[in-house]
Design a protein around this nucleic acid. Structure first.
Lengths: 158, 158
DNA sequence: GCGACATTGTTGGCATACGAACGAGCTGCG
DNA sequence: CGCAGCTCGTTCGTATGCCAACAATGTCGC
């Protein structure tokens, strides 16, 4: 990097940048841009291991259902950090494939209860190790310490 | 947290988990899930500062054009980590708003050259400080050291 | 110079994502 | 009890995000 008081070109560049209001704004250094790229790589690793029949969103819903058991569509959405409109589509596609069963909540007629079917539970058991490998491969470039640090920092930004 | 050799319950849980093949798979601890949540928070901060008229993707394209000057649609896509199909839609919407100008490349008739219009350049200059604030607010929970560490780790996973 | 191969842009299709608006049901407070 | 206000699910519209297939164009090797 050039010091501010370097030579003509450097000074001019600096002047132009502050005049443009852009100062040091470089897209590639922004957190949002980095996050998106890491996310892209992760999704691509996921797709390679899971194939086209299971998306990250569908897997998240399946895994959360296995974790918490039967729950309302809305709550499942909150558990998996999905919008109400998004969880609806995901739940629909899982149900269409027979991986989940739905029934109205007898206690609250607004609610739609969702649970894993036998096929869904079996598929979860089968794919959980694959999911673990996806996380592992995503984090492969990092040491054990670095992985822990990353988890801590990301959790703080959640 | 309980040690592996704790008491009956802990041992049983461990046994059940490995029997189910799920071992310690907890959705909330997976990198992919954390990344998605951080990304969500970032996009939400972005939207609050930029309003509905500018999306993160459109901003990325605008900022990259300001950085590198006129370039082909394809190259712009690579610069901004967007699929060919995605950059097409983004470029289309920017052009419709008069923020960019397009012309065929006289050297290569396959290429479509894209550049910032005067309005686009003005808007970039106006919004660059806002974008900086978005990054700042996203990283607000972290110290200066932590931010640098995060950038390093994310770059390694890119 | 010509044919195999690569690059660029376009299109169609599917799956997120999310805001907004809506109808139906629940709950608490006066 | 009654109703204001909340929650739950649905739908619509827009914007990603990516794959696969395709046509037009370039390039490189022989």
């Amino acid at each position: 990097m050039a010091t501010v008081t370097d030579e003509a070109t450097a000074v001019m560049t600096t002047a132009m940048e502050s005049a443009a209001g852009g100062a040091g704004y470089v897209l590639d250094d922004q957190v949002g841009f980095l996050l998106r790229q890491v996310q892209q790589r992760h999704v691509s690793i996921f797709a390679r291991h899971f194939g086209d029949d299971m998306t990250p969103m569908q897997w998240a819903a399946l895994a959360k259902l296995a974790e918490v058991g039967e729950c309302s569509q809305n709550l499942l959405g909150r558990h998996t950090a999905m919008d109400v409109a998004t969880i609806k589509g995901v739940a629909e596609r899982l149900a269409k494939r027979g991986l989940t069963a739905t029934r109205p909540d007898p206690e609250d007629r607004r609610r739609l209860l969702i649970s894993l079917s036998a096929e869904g539970a079996a598929l979860y058991a089968e794919l959980a190790p694959v999911a673990a490998r996806v996380s592992e491969e995503t984090l492969a470039p990092l040491s054990s310490d670095e992985r822990a640090t990353l988890a801590r920092l990301l959790t703080a930004l959640r």
